[in-house]
C-alpha cells in the first residue's frame, strides 16, 4: 500500500461525499462520546471506540454521527463508558462497553432508537458533575 498524500485524502473525501446520502437528524447531530481516561483505557475503551467507528460506517451514517473522546466520566467501576446523545432520545451513559456491546449500542440505540437497557449506567457519578 502506497502512502496516501493529504491531497489524495481530500479527493477520497469528495468522492465519499458524493456516494453517501447525508441523513438529516432533525437538524441536530448524534453524538457518541467514549471515556478515554486512565480507567477507560485500562478497561479497553480503544476497542469500544474502534467497534463504534466500524459499526457506524457499516450503517453508512458516518456523516451524521459525531464520535469523540473525553477523559474519565466518573464511572470508573463500569468502564469502558460511552455517552450517547441522540435527538429525541434520553441522554444515556452506557457502561461495561466491550466490542460486542459497542456494536449493539450503534445497531439498537443509534439506528433502531431503542435503549440497550442492560448497560445503562445513567449520568456521571455525583462527585464529578460540574455545577
Amino acid at each position: 500500500m502506497a502512502k496516501m498524500t493529504l491531497e489524495q485524502l481530500r479527493k477520497l473525501r469528495e468522492e465519499k461525499k458524493r456516494d453517501i446520502e447525508r441523513r438529516e437528524t432533525e437538524g441536530k447531530e448524534i453524538r457518541i462520546i467514549v471515556g478515554m481516561g486512565t480507567c477507560g483505557i485500562a478497561a479497553g475503551a480503544r476497542v469500544a471506540f474502534d467497534a463504534i467507528l466500524a459499526a457506524v460506517e457499516r450503517h453508512g451514517i458516518g456523516a451524521s454521527v459525531v464520535l469523540a473522546q473525553t477523559g474519565c466520566m466518573g464511572l470508573c467501576h463500569v468502564e469502558p463508558t460511552v455517552e450517547v446523545l441522540v435527538p429525541g432520545m434520553p441522554d444515556t451513559i452506557y457502561g461495561k462497553v466491550d466490542a460486542a456491546t459497542a456494536t449493539k449500542i450503534v445497531d439498537r440505540h443509534v439506528v433502531a432508537r431503542a435503549l440497550v437497557n442492560e448497560h445503562i449506567y445513567d449520568r456521571p457519578a455525583a462527585d464529578i458533575i460540574r455545577n
Binding site: 485524502l9 473525501r13 460506517e57 458516518g62 454521527v65 464520535l67
Partner: peptide, 13 residues
C-alpha cells in the same frame, strides 16, 4: 483534509 475529524466518516477517512 479529512473533513473536520468530528464525524465518524471523517475519522474513518
Amino acid at each position: 483534509a479529512a473533513g473536520g475529524l468530528r464525524d465518524a466518516e471523517s475519522l474513518a477517512l
